[in-house]
Write a protein that binds this DNA or RNA. Structure first.
Lengths: 265, 265
DNA sequence: GCTGGACTCTCCCTCGGGGGGAGGGTGCAC
DNA sequence: GTGCACCCTCCCCCCGAGGGAGAGTCCAGC
């Protein structure tokens, strides 16, 4: 039996952290003296402590660590770990995107963006929609678009998306992806939707979506300087996207922001 | 002039977050109505908001973000950003190491480790020492070892290190790297040191240092099961290391833990 | 000019995974 | 039997974000 200080020395986890792990039911001492409250650990607990240490280095949340170390079945354990490695990978993607975008934002002279005002009539489309959290949008989008592609055989234009502002303001919001078609079917999640008529401030973003926010900013500036105000969910149209070419620099995304004229303008 | 809600819509930063950035002097509204306290932003602030957004996605701490966006000189700004990208890279290394180690920890049957007790006499060495934070050890080590290599021309053995336990328990501690030699010089940070005589529990770790903790655990278990206790800073000896071969799987690191016999043993 | 509703303000609580330190009880070698 | 290192619990702080209460403000429509 090892006192907490000695166990700390053997595992390179601080005494404080060991106590917290006890409180969190993550690494319970082999015995606890009921009179003094002293924690005593067994040498058998060293490997467990090491696994916990590594998982925490990967920022795995404590409840998930508990689930992993308390799962007896090595197969299930490997699965849980694999899940977290996937999460790390997607975080890595996010980091890569932010780095790329930052480079362009800090580049000496960003290319100017042309913004125009366009009246768009009400349009019937085949759509899939849901309430989605901000960091799940990419995954949800891939699934929804695949389903649309499978169901809609005669698209009459480029696919698009409609993104509620709450998605950005509150981290969660309504998202809709669509393909324009006559007689939209009603299969699975796919169903017909009529997108309402709006007046859009439209700009075309060229290249990867990593720095699409730059174009959003340009549109926003244009909208404000032209005495307009933003009035509804953002529309995007994927003129050229991953389904057309793997070369992200060739992608063309139309960004449309519903606007209305401010009284004072 | 844009009210906070509109600016939020244009930048995809939440209203809450914008207020916090104001409090933190990070993104100060162009004007604040002194009577009502209402914040009003200018469209010129959109690009700044976007840079901040990206930096935060990279987990750059707010004070550092402030330093970056408030530095007028683009050169200095690029330098600050580059520093953070370096930090991201080293975090990535840490993640890689933790993943590799985790894989080995969860591997079905880890190789057994031979531990032996060895009396080591007092030894004179040429050393470089400092108080270092845990996450700076690797960088400090590289510099110190390079200086030792440059100064010590006639090493009579493999280099080594002595690591205070506080390094692990409190995240900061005394570290010493050394090369055994006769008549150690006193040049720059290099100076002679006599390592005291100790009794060491010694094991040899084979392979990359990513999972050296596994061997530490084995030594710890051995120490305890042999009725010994840990008594001082850890010693490592780099029998075969990066200076000998780039093939990490061939590295051999001797781990020595000073011990003394427990009375009851 | 008034009213209603959307918008904004400040202030405090919560969360997660740690660290610092106070104040007091324990274990054990001498 | 005494000194001292060790251990205990408890509370506060940190960061960067979100939730919600309660009150004040802006402005379009009437």
């Amino acid at each position: 039996m090892l006192a907490i200080g000695e166990f700390s020395r053997l595992t390179h986890l601080s005494v404080r952290t060991l106590r917290r792990y006890h409180d969190a039911d993550l690494l319970v001492p082999a015995t606890v003296d009921p009179a003094s409250g002293y924690r005593y650990y067994s040498v058998d607990q060293i490997p467990t402590a090491q696994v916990i240490h590594r998982l925490r280095e990967l920022d795995v949340p404590l409840p998930d660590v508990r689930r992993i170390v308390s799962s007896a079945d090595p197969g299930a354990r490997a699965g849980l770990v694999a899940d977290h490695l996937h999460r790390l990978e997607s975080e890595l993607d996010r980091t890569r995107a932010a780095v790329a975008s930052l480079r362009r934002l800090l580049a000496p002279e960003p290319a100017p963006v042309d913004v125009e005002l366009r009246a768009v009539p009400a349009t019937e489309v085949a759509a899939v929609e849901a309430d989605v959290a901000h960091d799940e949008v990419l995954g949800w989008y891939a699934g929804a678009m695949a389903e649309l592609d499978a169901v809609v055989v005669d698209p009459i234009g480029a696919p698009g998306g409609v993104y509620d502002n709450a998605l950005f303001e509150e981290g969660r919001g309504h998202v809709l992806v669509h393909v324009p078609t006559k007689d939209a079917p009603r299969v699975g999640r796919v169903h017909p939707v009529v997108l309402p008529a709006v007046e859009l401030a439209v700009a075309t973003h060229v290249g990867s979506h990593d720095d699409i926010e730059v174009t959003y900013g340009e549109v926003g500036t244009w909208v404000v300087t032209n005495a307009l105000a933003v009035a509804g969910p953002i529309r995007e149209t994927y003129l050229v996207g991953p389904r057309n070419t793997a070369d992200a620099s060739a992608w063309r995304t139309e960004i449309g922001w519903p606007v209305f004229r401010v009284a004072g303008g």
